[in-house]
Design a binder for these strands. Structure first.
Lengths: 320, 320
DNA sequence: CTGTTAGCGCTTTCAC
DNA sequence: GTGAAAGCGCTAACAG
């Protein structure tokens, strides 16, 4: 493969000049620029990316730490990230964490060692203290409310969302409201729990820990929810399900067991994924692809942390 | 960050010696090796990966071209690839192609320009002639039968599979068999079409183009299938659906429309994804994660193309 | 505007 | 066994 020297020689200029046209610097006379361009064309020349990286100390690689690749929620976010990455000529390095802290740490370590320029964490597993140690090494961006922290974030105010949703359901006449989330320990789950408890207190409703269902990530997790729910003496009349996929699983399972929706049980989903439309699920629309795009932009944007709140929208359909 | 020189100085040896211990070369006296190791420890030294890459002419990056990130079929495969990548200290560069040829070409170009060491194409969009032009630049591995071509592959014999499945259904008494696939033009789809036609001929059954449903990738695609199917004068009595997710969508839709399964319509899925178990779908088990692992291993293995056929297994449940 | 040159950090040949 | 030194291909002061 031809290198910059070959091009320089062929175009009758110095390597610097070639480098200048390669990098769109000004101060290159038109004729020379054209000569260089011609030589590049002729040799089908392509920069050696590794040399560029070494020289610049940048990798044009952005890490993406994602819990699962086979969960559409993250898949959609990844799509947004990937879209924006190609647009900006960056490559993505994928870390599937399975919510294991050590896997996230690997990604953080790569940031430390300059093997990636920035890191996007789609759903954090590490403690904040751990993240804090690594912010000095490069931009870290999260998909959760990180205002006040030293990292960027694109986030949804899950407290507010949840509280509003709860009020909506309450106004519809529901007194016994349950909900399903992914990890119990996730930051979002904690915000939701707080909203839930605050809401209960405000409305003078009593708290029943059995009304909360954990580890709901995939379609098939709906089965467990219904199994647990049917075992309850006094089950909730509505479920706030933080993923349409899981909501769909729940609904499917209910049909099997002749539990009428919304007759016996109402369901409110999250995300407004295509499946929600198909199954007529009332849901909170979250623009996941757009969130992915924003996350990426923050990762390569200014060094100063920025924060952007994403608004959600209620889509009323037929499960409530 | 400390570099190799600092380590050399601190350990009282030359950079060469440091490099030797770094790369596990023999011919380093024990004491020196230990001194180096100690210095590395002390400085928390980490190799500059870009320098290594430049020097070696390798990137330790493997490209993965995947049509969609939010389709669990590919998500599962990606999981296997990602697993094996971390194990081997490689990083993945993700290309979401959306089945657009140009996106796949971008990946191929990166291979050409040594920006990645190898490329895994999970579902090909380009013609073989195009792929052929790029095999000279580095290993390309595909997830389709590529025996006889100059690339590696891990594949399923879709012709055989389909034929067997068809026979199974026929033995169960079905005469009107339809099927659903993703892209009409995909290599796998063509194999299946051939198997389908051959089977029909063998059994002296007539061919009805309306019995084939295309563009079935996601859960929500099930709706279209049922819409089309119900419009048919003489609809099939069983559907071979090449993705459990789609099968699940079809089943869900059928429930809504009071189409009994397997009474009115039988369904056979593909993959044995968790959703299949949950919905009791009779399906052909395909070890996607394992396929991903194998694909990755082939991508960094010997330069000689290798081919591995993956066997599938019928899982009988309640939809037939 | 343009070219010379000194790195970037590591690997590897070659001579000792 | 060991080290000096020549690259790998590109960028960016700096001098002109």
């Amino acid at each position: 493969m031809a290198n910059i020297k070959d091009i320089a020689k062929s175009a009758g200029v110095s390597v610097t000049t070639v480098s200048r046209v390669l990098n769109d610097h000004p101060y290159v006379r038109k004729e020379k620029r054209e000569a260089v361009l011609r030589a590049i064309e002729e040799f089908n020349y392509q920069r050696n990316i590794n040399a560029v990286h070494l020289s610049k100390g940048e990798t044009f690689l952005v890490g993406v730490a994602i819990p699962y690749t086979d969960v559409p929620y993250f898949g959609l976010m990844l799509e947004g990230i990937a879209n924006e990455a190609v647009k900006n000529n960056y490559k993505l390095v994928l870390f599937q964490t399975n919510y294991e802290e050590t896997r996230e740490l690997e990604a953080l370590k790569m940031l430390q060692h300059k093997q990636i320029d920035a890191l996007i964490i789609c759903s954090r597993s590490c403690e904040w203290e751990v993240i804090d140690e690594y912010v000095q090494y490069g931009p870290i961006v999260l998909c959760e409310d990180a205002r006040g922290k030293n990292v960027s974030s694109t986030f949804i105010d899950h407290y507010k969302c949840f509280f509003n949703a709860l009020e909506y359901l309450h106004n519809k006449g529901h007194q016994k409201i349950g909900y399903c989330v992914g990890r119990k320990s996730g930051a979002n789950s904690k915000q939701r729990e707080k909203a839930y408890k605050d809401f209960l207190k405000k409305e003078n409703l009593s708290f029943d820990p059995h009304y909360i269902f954990y580890d709901c990530n995939k379609f098939e997790d709906g089965v467990k929810v219904i199994e647990q729910l049917t075992r309850l003496q006094d089950p909730p009349t509505v479920l706030l399900v933080t993923s349409d996929i899981v909501a769909a699983g729940i609904i499917t399972c209910c049909k099997e067991k002749d539990i009428a929706i919304p007759g016996d049980l109402s369901i409110m989903g999250f995300d407004n994924q295509p499946i929600a439309q198909m199954m007529h699920i009332t849901t909170l629309e979250i623009p996941l692809v757009e969130i992915g795009r924003k996350l990426f932009r923050q990762s390569i944007g200014s060094r100063n942390p920025s924060h952007e709140e994403i608004m959600v929208k209620l889509i009323e359909r037929q499960t409530i």
